Simulated assay, not measured.
Amino acid sequence: MIKDIFFLFLKLSLLALGGGFVFIGFIELEIKKKSWDSLCDIPSLIAVSTSLPGPIITNLSYLIGKSLKGSIGGLTAILGAILPPFLIIYFLAPLLMNQGASNYFVATFLRGGIIGVMVFVLLTASRWIYSVYKMGAVSFISYILMTALMLMGIHPLFALSIGFIVNISWGGKRDIE
């Protein structure tokens, strides 16, 4: 299983141009494909990894690897996740700088990457919104309220507090599956 963990995170790191939120979308799909979702609670690990300091990819990799195969699994997952960007930067950056690659080539590559990142961020956000919608009208309204407050420039802690108060006040006590 250690080898499987390494190659999973290696593959996902190669595909996750765009950072942690793209990686989150990929990892959720891949863990379900491998039927490892019974071994680790992905939504909880995502919540913890996004609240920890540092890159989401390394935090999430370690937490998933650790829940699958202990500390060795966590370290293996981190190695798989950081190896592709390290090698790409190590070998490609000097090549682009020394060979006089045109800015047009680099800009075109990054524009294509931006489109891919936008697609995966939107897919991940739509799954999150749908899961909140399934929790009920009050949860959905508080989610929309929190998002709107943050988009208006309100501090996220204040927006989350408002959403929490709305959910507790009008949502009542509810069993979560």
Rank of each mutant, 00 (worst) to 15 (best):
N103K: 14
K69T: 07
L63I: 05
G54I: 00
N59E: 05
M97N: 14
P43C: 13
T76I: 15
P84Q: 05
G112S: 02
I89R: 07
I42F: 07
I115V: 04
L92S: 08
I129S: 01
T76V: 15
R111E: 09
G113F: 06
S67A: 11
K66Q: 09
G73A: 07
Q99D: 12
Y62N: 07
T50G: 13
P85E: 10
Y62Q: 08
P43G: 11
L95K: 11
M135P: 09
S67N: 14
L87D: 03
I57A: 06
V121R: 01
R127F: 08
A125P: 01
N59M: 02
I78R: 00
A101Y: 15
A47H: 09
K66Y: 08
F109E: 01
L96W: 07
Y104F: 13
F109C: 02
L60S: 03
K134F: 11
S102T: 15
S67V: 02
V48T: 10
I89K: 08
P94G: 13
T76K: 06
L92G: 05
G116W: 00
L63G: 01
P85L: 07
G100S: 10
N59W: 04
G54K: 06
Y133L: 15
L83N: 04
P55D: 09
L95V: 08
T108H: 10
L52V: 01
K134S: 14
L96G: 12
F86D: 06
Y90M: 09
I72E: 10
L92E: 05
L92H: 06
V121E: 06
Y130A: 13
K134N: 14
P85G: 08
L39G: 05
Y130C: 07
G65Y: 02
L39H: 03
G113K: 03
A77H: 06
F86I: 10
L75F: 15
A47S: 14
P53G: 03
A125S: 12
I114Q: 11
N98W: 11
T50N: 13
Y104H: 11
S49T: 03
Y130M: 12
G73W: 03
V121N: 08
G112C: 03
M135H: 11
N59K: 02
I72V: 14
I82F: 03
F109A: 07
G70L: 05
L60M: 05
I64K: 04
G80Y: 10
Y90W: 11
A125N: 06
A101P: 12
S102I: 08
A47N: 10
G80R: 09
I114S: 04
I88L: 04
V48S: 06
Y133I: 12
I89H: 05
F86G: 02
T58Y: 05
A107W: 06
A77S: 11
Y133M: 13
L83A: 10
G100I: 12
L96T: 12
V106Y: 10
N103Q: 14
S71I: 11
S71A: 12
Q99N: 15
K66T: 03
G113M: 10
P53D: 03
V121K: 01
L68W: 04
Y130I: 12
A125T: 09
I42K: 00
